[in-house]
Design a protein around this nucleic acid. Structure first.
Lengths: 142, 142
DNA sequence: ACATTATAGTTACAAATGAAACTATGTTGT
DNA sequence: ACAACATAGTTTCATTTGTAACTATAATGT
């Protein structure tokens, strides 16, 4: 019968629970110690990987919307964790990069979030961790 | 080196992407046709399973906070999808239940969200679907 | 060249969310 | 009985978030 439906067995619901729980646990690891939120952390992480990105490129890498990026960048720039330069070929865009302080924060946070991830996956076998990653990829890329 | 960190490979980040994408896709399937949001849908789904629940019990089943539940219930009650009675043993609590209209909405939405779930998992093999569920359970219950 | 349309990014406003204070009822200890 | 504390649920207020409008620059078509 289609009138039977068990929310707690519904995969999207369980996925949402899991993701929210993990995200807030990880966010704790830089919120209290470094006063940054998830959006700001994502931008810092990406600018470490891809310096001189524009906001539009950040949008692509972080899956955030442009308003969220603009706001996070405003804060990060005020706090001198991020700085910017004119873009050579496009007067509308800015090239963004971490300041030394921003880069320092990044190197402090990386081990914390990595430890979180490891603690999290420590209840899984190596095989399960691999499977989990593969399944997520399949679902993300369809 | 701990200064290497690839956001797009970071499991919690990918999980968050996946969960958000799936949640909004499913939310579409009742938002436009039935004008309810995720919180409201969760409450309707649970009240179908567990009629006469109190708000506190809903909190347990839906993983929502009590403010969100109170607000969702206010809307649902105004729209006459949910109704309530005094609780026999506790004057502070109310017993909540779906109205016929609420129940009807539920039976209309269930096949839609189930189809969504099926479409979603259709890129996975039966084995992968089982593995995925087991891994999520492990992670949720540690 | 210039009008049209598209894109980069910001701002303004509205809706959603969360934390804390609040009301009302219930429970516990003396 | 009654004081102290705990719990059910709501409301208030501040913060966050999303949508739409906006400015500025770039690209396109005639």
């Amino acid at each position: 019968m289609s009138t039977e439906f068990d929310l707690e067995q519904f995969l999207p619901y369980r996925l949402s629970l899991l993701s929210n729980r993990i995200s807030s646990e990880i966010a704790e690891s830089y919120r209290d110690s470094h006063q940054i939120n998830i959006s700001e952390w994502r931008i810092i992480a990406v600018l470490g990987q891809y310096p001189n990105s524009t906001a539009t490129e950040l949008k692509h890498y972080t899956a955030m919307d442009k308003v969220g990026i603009s706001r996070a960048l405003k804060n990060l720039t005020q706090r001198q964790l991020v700085t910017s330069e004119n873009h050579e070929h496009d007067g509308r865009a800015r090239k963004l990069m971490l300041t030394p302080a921003g880069n320092h924060l990044r190197t402090e946070v990386i081990p914390k979030v990595s430890a979180c991830e490891q603690k999290l996956t420590s209840v899984l076998t190596k095989t399960e961790i691999r499977q989990f990653g593969e399944i997520i990829d399949k679902l993300l890329h369809d």
